Structure formats: C-alpha cells, structure tokens
Amino acid sequence: MTRTTVGRMPVPPKRPLRLVPVDDHEMVLHGLDAMLGHFPDEVQIVGQATTAAAALTLVAEESPDVVLCDVRIGKESGLDLCKQITTQYPDTKVVLLTVYDDEHYLFQGLRVGASGYILKRIDGQELVGHLRRVREGETVVDHALAGRVALSAARLSSGEFWPGAHLGLTQRESEVLELLVSGHSNKGVASKLVVSEDTVKTHIRGLYRKLGVSDRSGAISVALREGLFR
C-alpha cells in the first residue's frame, strides 16, 4: 500500500498593519508617509488626520489596527482622543508618538488605554518593530523612558506606590507636587498634565490640606524634607 504524505497547509502571509497617523503638523504626516513607505509589506497607511474629529471619522470608516497620534494635536488633547478610540473602537489600538520625553504623559497615556508611548526621534525600522509588537498585543515604551518606568515599578513593589502616598496624597496630587518642586507655575502644571488650571488649583488645595501647609513654599519644604522626589 502506498503511503500518502500530507503536508502542512501553507500559512497565508499576514496582511500589512493598517495604520492611521494623527498629527496637526503636515510635515510630520509627510515624514511618516515617506518613512513607512519603505515597509509596504509591514504597514499600510489607510488615512491621515490633523484633528481629533477627523481621526474618529477615519477610525469609524477604516477600522485600522493602530492609530498613531501625538499627546497634543494643536489645541486638542491626544490623550482624550486615545480614550475615545479605545472606548468606542476596542479593536483599534493607539500608540502615542510624541516629542514629550515625560513620564507624566506616559503614565497618563497608559491610564487611558494607549498600547505604546514612542518618541519622535525613532527611525523607521524601530517604529515598524514597535507597531508589530503592538499588533501582537504587547505594550511598548520608548527605551529612553524605560529607566523611569523601572523606578516606578520598584516603588510599587516596595509598597510606596507613589511619592507622598504615605502622607495621604493621591497619585495626581503627588504629580502636581513634583511639578511644583520643579518650579512650574499653575499654568505650567496644567500644560504638563493636560488639565485645566482650575483642576490644578483643586489638587493644590488638597495637597496643602494633607501636608498641613498654607502655601507653595511650605509644600515644597515638606517634599524636600521627606525626600519625596530625587
């Protein structure tokens, strides 16, 4: 009797990742188009947007695998856009591509559902690699921020959670206090955290009360005395 060997069914090639870049600067969009054009088998740009509204329309129409957007889109918040996309279109992942080398933005992005945080100085090959990993379900963080993320993880494992937790500060109050210690004005804090100045003032009143101080210098003195920020 002749034995028939049945080979494995060939695995169909994976289709290119469908991508929608969002940025208020046309030059950035053109640059991404040119850079990713070298990887047609890996990434296909199915649309570009310069506003949050246009991005949401594209996501609804094209169902991309990934939206690549900045933390700020003109006067709009890329973080708000990220939250809208991940809530309304859970099959589409969002990666933040930004110039902000800032762990505050990183943590905010992860809180609202971002699958990655990458700095704009990245090259094409690295970007494609990160997008591939995101498509496969990983969360990617730019290597320049990895050390700070590791420090935060060490604080979590030691039970500290965040600087000032033992004094009763919420995580957001701790973030506000760190920026005050760094010399930021209320407006500067609001810009960093992508919130209104009124929201910042509310957090400041809360941390003043918990630290038992009445002004900014008193709060900073407590932070320095306790060694909250290094």
Rank of each mutant, 00 (worst) to 15 (best):
A34F: 10
A53F: 02
S174T: 13
L169N: 10
P16I: 11
G109L: 04
P90N: 05
F107L: 01
V22D: 05
V43E: 01
G212M: 04
Q108L: 01
Y117F: 08
L131S: 06
R132F: 15
T86E: 13
K210I: 00
L169V: 11
E175C: 08
K83R: 13
M27F: 06
V189A: 09
D142H: 11
D91N: 14
P10A: 03
T51V: 00
E61A: 14
E76S: 10
M1Y: 07
V140Y: 03
V71E: 05
H184W: 14
R225W: 02
A55S: 13
Q108N: 08
A60I: 12
L97A: 03
G31K: 04
A190L: 07
G78H: 11
L81K: 05
R18L: 04
L156F: 11
A146M: 07
G159Q: 12
R230E: 13
R18K: 13
R121H: 08
A52S: 00
A52E: 00
V195I: 15
A150F: 13
T86A: 11
D123K: 15
E103A: 02
T86M: 10
D215V: 08
L81C: 08
H38E: 01
G124Q: 06
D80K: 06
G159W: 11
P10I: 04
A54W: 02
S214Y: 10
S115K: 13
A223L: 07
V176Y: 14
L167P: 08
I73P: 03
G183Y: 11
A223V: 00
I85K: 03
L224G: 07
L79F: 02
C69P: 01
R135E: 11
I220K: 04
V43M: 08
E136L: 11
L68C: 09
P13T: 09
A150P: 12
V222R: 10
L169P: 12
S157I: 03
V43Y: 06
R8K: 00
V99N: 09
V94C: 01
A53E: 05
Y100A: 05
D91S: 07
T139Q: 04
L207H: 12
L228Y: 12
S115D: 12
T170R: 15
H184G: 05
L119H: 09
L167Q: 10
A153K: 02
P40Q: 01
R216A: 04
S157E: 12
V181F: 15
V67R: 06
Q171D: 14
L19F: 13
S77F: 01
A219T: 00
F107D: 02
H104M: 09
R8E: 00
C69W: 06
F229T: 04
P40A: 03
V94N: 01
A154T: 13
S77V: 09
N186E: 06
P40N: 00
G7W: 05
A34C: 03
D70S: 12
L193F: 00
Q48K: 10
E175W: 14
G137C: 12
L211I: 01
I118R: 03
E61T: 12
T202C: 13
L145S: 03
V67C: 10
L193M: 02
G116L: 09
A165T: 10
E173N: 15
I204R: 14
